[in-house]
């Protein structure tokens, strides 16, 4: 859609809040903890299916004609509003659902202990990535989507329902953000301003990988994670800005990111 979407941060936070409050409430009513993983997923689905279409149909669809930067600012304005909406719904007190995190126990690698939940996170991430790749490459909707993103006007002329595609894309993208938030929720305390840090970090990841490239985003995320851990172990002073340093370096040598998609210049 060529939208740099700041509300992604809000969906991350919404996902985390929904997951924490719904799972917490169900656990308190005696739900077996083993079901909580499904509830995490379900809550992410719930918020994104309700809120994303509301935003897309209610506001964003009137704005697509505007400049990319203006759209970015619109999503920023929505992000600010959603921050306060979240505060109104859930208050400022933190939510916790640590059960899914501790439930599975932990395992030792060499001298260090890791919880199995970290493996679940890795699994969810791989599943989402693979699912997305399959959807874009092998389903009708996915292929239509790629066509719409590549050239909206031609797609419309070919009879594709572009509005519906936009709605699907936005909702699906938001769902992924909400899943990210929901599955992070058990490891953190869910507090206001949760989405702020994530959004800049994910921009960095996407830019390192190359905008609009799925393998790029995956590689970017792995790179960011590795570089950050390396910095923490060997050069803690640099941890604050090392990601931005990597981003600047990558852009200096590959101006459009690692997996950039060639773009025709219009004369």
């Amino acid at each position: 859609m060529k939208i740099v979407n700041v509300t992604h941060g809000s969906f991350y936070a919404l996902g985390a809040y929904a997951a924490a409050s719904i799972t917490g409430a169900l656990l308190a009513r005696g739900m077996p903890p083993s079901l909580s993983y499904a509830v995490l997923l379900g809550s992410a689905l719930l918020v994104s299916v309700i809120v994303a279409p509301l935003i897309e149909r209610g506001i964003l669809r009137f704005m697509y004609a505007k400049d990319e930067v203006v759209i970015l600012l619109i999503t920023y304005a929505l992000f600010l509003i959603l921050e306060d909406v979240i505060k109104m719904i859930w208050g400022v007190n933190p939510y916790f659902i640590a059960e899914p995190y501790g439930l599975l126990g932990s395992f030792d690698v060499l001298d260090l202990t890791y919880p199995y939940y970290n493996l679940i996170l890795v699994g969810v991430a791989i599943a989402c990535g693979a699912g997305l790749a399959w959807m874009l490459g092998s389903t009708r909707t996915g292929k239509l989507l790629v066509a719409v993103i590549h050239d909206t006007e031609v797609s419309r002329a070919m009879g594709i329902n572009v509005d519906r595609m936009y709605l699907y894309t936005f909702t699906f993208g938001s769902l992924l953000a909400a899943i990210g938030g929901a599955f992070t929720a058990p490891t953190v305390s869910v507090v206001p301003a949760l989405g702020v840090e994530v959004i800049v970090l994910s921009f960095a990841v996407v830019v390192i990988g190359g905008l609009g490239s799925l393998p790029g985003a995956a590689l970017g995320a792995v790179m960011v994670g590795l570089v950050r851990s390396a910095a923490i172990h060997y050069l803690p002073q640099a941890e604050l800005f090392v990601i931005y340093l990597v981003m600047a370096m990558v852009l200096a040598f590959r101006p459009r990111g690692l997996f950039s998609i060639a773009e025709a210049r219009k004369i």
């Binding site: 640590a98 995190y101 501790g102 953190v188 305390s189 507090v191």
Partner: peptide, 16 residues
Amino acid sequence: WDGDLEAFILQAGPRG
């Protein structure tokens, strides 16, 4: 303090 402290407790506990 706060969110960071809580996240730290939640993450450090299971790791011993």
